[in-house]
Simulated scan of single mutants.
Amino acid sequence: MSNKRVSIVFSTFNSSEYVTKCLKSCLCQEYDDFFVVVADDGSTDNTVYKMLEIASVYSNLKVISLPHGERGIARSKAIELARELKSDYIYIIDSDMILKDNLIKDCIKFLDENKKVGGLIIPEVSFSDYKNFYSRVKVFERNIINSAGEDIGSNSVEAARFWRIQEYDSTGGININQISFEETQPTIRYIEDGGIIKRAVFTRIYHNEKKATLKAIVEKKKYYFSVMNKTIESEKNGLKKTLSRWYFFRPVLYRKENLKKYIKHPLLTLGMFYMYIVLTFMGIGQLLKAKAYSKK
């Protein structure tokens, strides 16, 4: 087993409801040399207090408190501290995720045995404690997206999260000026440059989708689509990359295993594709609006 240092990094914003479970799953990992680095993006609840309380017990938990900005800025600050801690690997997660036992150890073992692999996509198992229709649809949709086998397709929308830090840095990392879908861009760049990314089908992470409504989903995506031009314009062939990964163009949706799930869950399938239709029209409208505004 490698004795290399790992830093688990993530950002928080008003995450007091679920951040404790996330931290416990990180800090209970069986691995000798690791840190958990959290950058708080100006929370107004007691998120920071809860984290500092845990940090008083765990010396390998580092908490950065920042003024409110954008998620990418907070993530980049956490990754910056991971570098200062001389980490050999970074694992970028969200504050509403729960790590499977031995996830770190299993990923390091795989990378030790597969030297040419630069980063891993960790399969997510989505869940929600809420049973309303669109909470169930969101869980269903995310589990469809994450049912994609070991190899990564050219139009994958998933982001590698577990990286050899040198390989991550070779991509340029997160561009803090890209407010939408900035987390997937390092993965896309790395694959385009010939790097190898694998999906770690031997482990998983649990993702809490919380309470979802169609209105809330649309409002959240509306903001990201309204600033997507910043991502498109700052990436080589940005528009082509965006269109090739648009909802209905994702090959994972048409995998045999997923087609079986559609038949088994017809109402959730209809809800998912209706959501995609609504988001497609809204997204196109926001992109055209942003483009017209930029020409003024």
Rank of each mutant, 00 (worst) to 15 (best):
S128I: 04
F249I: 03
K109E: 14
A148W: 10
I98W: 04
K289G: 08
I165T: 05
I145G: 01
E235W: 06
R250D: 13
Q29H: 07
L66R: 12
K230N: 14
I165Q: 03
K260S: 13
M1C: 07
T184S: 08
V9E: 04
I152W: 00
I145Y: 02
S154I: 14
V117P: 07
N46Q: 11
F127Q: 02
K77D: 12
Q185V: 14
K116G: 08
E235R: 11
F13I: 13
I232F: 02
N258A: 04
Y224K: 09
A160W: 00
Q166E: 11
K115G: 11
R161I: 07
L103C: 02
K211V: 09
S59A: 12
N177A: 08
M51K: 05
A55R: 05
K77T: 12
A212N: 15
Y254W: 06
F35R: 02
C22G: 00
I205C: 08
V36P: 00
G153T: 14
G118R: 01
N102E: 15
K50I: 07
V278T: 12
L111W: 05
V63A: 10
R161T: 09
M282G: 04
S56W: 09
Y49F: 15
H265W: 04
C107V: 00
K77M: 15
I98G: 02
A159R: 04
K220D: 08
K221Y: 14
E182I: 09
H68T: 13
I217F: 11
A292H: 13
H207F: 06
G285F: 04
Y190V: 02
I90P: 02
A39I: 05
C107S: 02
I284Q: 06
Y262I: 00
D151F: 09
K210R: 15
K215D: 03
E183P: 07
E113A: 03
L270H: 02
V157E: 03
L52H: 04
I104E: 01
S135E: 11
L279K: 03
P123S: 00
H265C: 02
I232T: 04
A82S: 10
D129H: 07
L268Y: 02
F248M: 05
N102D: 15
E80S: 09
P251T: 13
D129G: 07
E150W: 11
G153F: 11
I108S: 09
S226A: 12
F249V: 03
I144C: 04
K131N: 12
K24R: 15
N229W: 12
P186D: 07
K86T: 03
L214G: 11
A148I: 12
S128H: 06
E183Y: 12
G173A: 04
K296H: 14
Y293F: 11
M282C: 05
F110D: 11
P67M: 08
G173L: 00
V37T: 00
L288N: 01
N3F: 10
F249L: 07
I217C: 12
D41V: 06
L288E: 00
K241Q: 05
N175R: 08
K261F: 07
T187K: 04
W246Q: 06
W246I: 09
N208V: 07
A212M: 13
K264R: 15
E113G: 01
K240A: 10
K138S: 13
E30V: 10
S126G: 13
D151P: 01
E209S: 13
L81Y: 13
Y31T: 06
E182Y: 14
I98L: 04
F248S: 05
I79N: 02
Y130L: 09
